[in-house]
């Protein structure tokens, strides 16, 4: 349509914003393969900086800690979040609106406030700071995000299928496991992947509630950024980028997934 044609200056401006969003990370990735240790002149291709990563025990340990924290906090928050979303979407109870509003508070609360207040709690009750405290914190900030994602899927779901199952004689439990769960599964997976990504990337909250033996990858990377600038940081950053991009791509595909059963039209 003629009226929807974009003026050149607008397209150029938007292209510039895209460049601003993506060129810094592309540069980072490209220079993780640069031979030169100092400066940014290109001297040749190498995978040396990636090999160096495997020699650093702190990075290996950080990666392990991040995976342990990421997986456990994802499993717990996905389970708790999905149950909450089911209650909100499928049940009438007093204070439902209030509960929905309450769930948005953790999302808008600045990370630093979440981290500090949890640190105060842990110190007050003498809870040891370590992997466990980090997992607890990650679950606390992930639950709300899982609820939002799963709730969106639940509200977009065709309830007729469930009603049809009931009319055909299935009881609530059968209907839940055979109809609701399979239909909801992409939403649950997509919520889980976002939860894992947030846990895997979190620096701010983790930095307050972490203790000995619980330095996750972002904590190690922060120390590297602070201390010295060497190409190993580019390499580890590239690895983190690749992992999160894959997860986000998968979550995005799942989120858009069509319902498993198509209604005939």
């Amino acid at each position: 349509m003629h009226s929807l044609k974009m003026p050149i200056w607008l397209t150029a401006f938007v292209a510039a914003v895209y460049a601003f969003l993506h060129i810094p990370l592309l540069v980072l990735v490209v220079f993780s393969f640069n031979e030169s240790k100092y400066g940014v002149s290109w001297t040749g291709f190498t995978t040396h900086w990636y090999e160096r990563l495997w020699e650093r025990q702190d990075i290996i340990d950080g990666l392990k800690a991040s995976v342990v924290v990421g997986v456990s906090s994802t499993v717990i928050s996905t389970l708790l979040g999905t149950l909450m979303a089911l209650a909100i979407a499928r049940h009438e109870f007093r204070g439902r609106r209030l509960m929905e509003a309450f769930l948005y508070i953790p999302i808008v609360t600045p990370e630093i406030v979440v981290g500090i207040s949890l640190l105060i709690l842990f110190v007050l009750v003498n809870f040891p700071l370590g992997l466990m405290s980090v997992v607890i914190a990650h679950v606390a900030f992930n639950i709300s995000f899982v609820v939002v994602v799963v709730l969106a899927r639940l509200q977009g779901m065709d309830r007729n299928l469930e009603e049809a199952a009931m009319i055909l004689g299935a009881d609530e439990l059968t209907t839940f496991w055979r109809i609701t769960v399979p239909l909801l599964w992409p939403g649950i997976l997509s919520g889980a992947m976002l939860a894992f990504t947030m846990s895997f990337d979190d620096y701010v909250i983790t930095s307050f509630v972490t203790g000995t033996g619980a330095s996750t990858l972002p904590i190690v990377v922060y120390t590297m950024v602070r201390k010295n600038i060497e190409p190993s940081i580019n390499a580890i950053s590239t690895i983190i980028l690749v992992i999160t991009s894959l997860l986000i791509f998968a979550a995005d595909r799942l989120g858009r997934d069509k319902p498993l059963v198509k209604s005939e039209e």
Partner: peptide
């Protein structure tokens, strides 16, 4: 998707990318 991607990628890594561009020898 290109807009969503940086939305979810590590804030720490993105901040480091800025340092890499902006520093005196950047």
């Amino acid at each position: 998707f290109l807009v969503i991607l940086p939305f979810w990628t590590s804030f720490l890594v993105r901040t480091f990318a800025m340092i890499f561009l902006l520093r005196d020898t950047g």
